[in-house]
Simulated scan of single mutants.
Amino acid sequence: MASNAPATSAARPLEHMTKLSPCVYFYRPTTAPPAPSTTGATASQKPAPKLIILASWMGARDPHIAKYLVQYQALFPASPILLLRSEPRHFIRPRGNAAEFSPAVPVVRSIFPELGDATADDKQTNPPQQQQPQLLIHAWSNGGASALLHLRRAMGPVAAPLPPYTLVLDSTPGAFRYRAAYLAFTTGLTGLARWFVAPLMHLMCVMYWVQHELIGRGRTGPLQSTRGALNDAASRRSEVRRAYVYGEGDRLVHWRDVEGHAAEAEGKGFSVKTEKFEGGEHVAHVRVDAARYWRVVKETWEGWD
C-alpha cells in the first residue's frame, strides 16, 4: 500500500494506483497536488472521507475509470481511494467472487480498525442519518453494485456493519430484462466477433430467464441479490444517505427499475434522492451535465437538507 503520486499517462492511466489483484486497486494520496478538474469541481469544505470506494461498471476500461478518479482527487485531495473492478466472469462464474475481492478487505480494515468490534458497534445508538459519514461509496451499473456485495461477503459473515457512509448509484440497480442483459454482454463487439458471440449470449440469457425468472419467480439470481442487499437491514444500519443517478436513454438498466428500487429504499427508511438526467445513457450521465453530476456527488457527501 505504498503511496503513489496522482500523475497519470495516456498509456497507463491507473499507474498511480497500487494493483492488489486483477480487480482491486488502491490509491493513497501524497503531498503532490491533485490532477486538475475538468468540470470545475472544487475540494469539499466538509471533513473528507476516510476512504472512497469506487466500484466500476462491468468491463470498464482504464481511461474511462481514470476520468472519475481525477474528479474525486479534486473533490477530496486527502482521501485514499479503493477501486473495485467488475468483469464479465463475475456474472458468468459467480462462485469465488468474494475471494477475488478479498485483497480489498485489509485496506478497509486498516482504515476502519473498529470494524468487527461488537462493543464499538453497540455504543453507536444514533440513527445513521444523524451521523457524520466517514466512507463514500460510488457504484456504476449492476457490475459495480454487485462488486460491493462481493466485498461485503469477503469481509465475512460476522463482519460488523460498515462505518457511516454515503452512496451514489449510477445506472443501477437494474432488474432482469432480456434485451438489456444481451446488450450488456455484447456492447463493444462488432463484425465477426459479435456474430460468433451472439448465440452464446442468447443462450446465457435464456438460461438465466428460466432459472431465475421462471423457476425462481424473479426472487433469485445475482441481480436480485444485489437489489436486496442494497436495501437490507445491514445497509440501513450504516447508510447516511444515497443518490440515484439515471436516465431514460439507458438501454441496459431501465429507469423504472431504478425508480422502483429508490421507492422501496425510501419506504424502508433510507434517505434517498433521485437525479434523472434527460437523455442520459448507461454510465454516461456525466456527459449530459458534468457540473450537475459532480454537484450531486458532493451534495450526497455533504448533505442536502
Rank of each mutant, 00 (worst) to 15 (best):
Q131P: 03
A11M: 11
H16S: 12
L75S: 00
A32Q: 15
R241S: 06
D232K: 09
S110E: 15
I92R: 15
S102C: 06
I215H: 10
A233E: 15
S146C: 12
K298L: 11
H282Y: 11
L82A: 06
R61W: 07
Q129V: 06
A118W: 13
M17H: 07
V245T: 02
Y165K: 05
P94G: 13
G303Y: 08
L54R: 03
A48E: 12
H254F: 09
S44N: 02
A55R: 00
V288M: 04
P33Q: 12
F101A: 10
A32E: 15
E264W: 05
N231E: 09
Q131R: 15
M204G: 08
L223V: 03
T186Y: 04
P34H: 03
P128Q: 07
D232R: 09
D250Y: 06
Y72V: 01
I52M: 09
T190F: 14
L214G: 01
E266Q: 11
S238Y: 02
T18M: 03
T18W: 01
H90C: 07
R61M: 08
A35E: 11
S102I: 05
Q224A: 11
R295V: 03
G269F: 13
P63E: 06
E278W: 09
P94D: 15
L54Q: 05
D117T: 07
I111P: 00
L189N: 07
E87R: 13
P106Y: 06
M201P: 03
Q211R: 15
Y208T: 10
L203G: 05
L230G: 00
R256T: 08
S44V: 08
G221P: 04
P127I: 03
A193I: 10
R85W: 05
K46N: 08
R152G: 13
G269N: 10
E266D: 07
A160F: 11
G116K: 00
D289K: 02
K273H: 11
R109G: 04
G269A: 10
S102W: 04
A284L: 11
G40H: 06
K50W: 06
L148W: 05
K19P: 13
A160I: 06
S238I: 02
D117E: 12
E248L: 04
L84I: 08
V197S: 11
F101V: 15
L20M: 13
Y165Q: 11
M1C: 10
E100L: 12
P29T: 07
R251F: 09
R28L: 12
Q71N: 05
D121H: 09
A198K: 07
R237K: 15
G303I: 06
Q224D: 05
R256S: 07
F112R: 00
A35M: 13
V283P: 01
E264R: 09
R28M: 10
V288C: 05
P34D: 01
C23A: 09
V24R: 00
M1H: 12
N126M: 14
G191E: 08
V108R: 01
A104P: 00
R109A: 07
R241A: 07
G116N: 03
V105L: 03
R28G: 09
M1Q: 11
K298Q: 14
P36H: 08
S56I: 01
T42Q: 14
H150N: 03
T166N: 04
M58D: 02
G280L: 06
V105D: 01
G143M: 00
V258A: 03
V158C: 09
M58Q: 01
A198N: 09
G267Q: 08
S86K: 00
S3K: 13
R93N: 15
L136I: 04
R219M: 11
G144C: 02
H282F: 10
A263V: 08
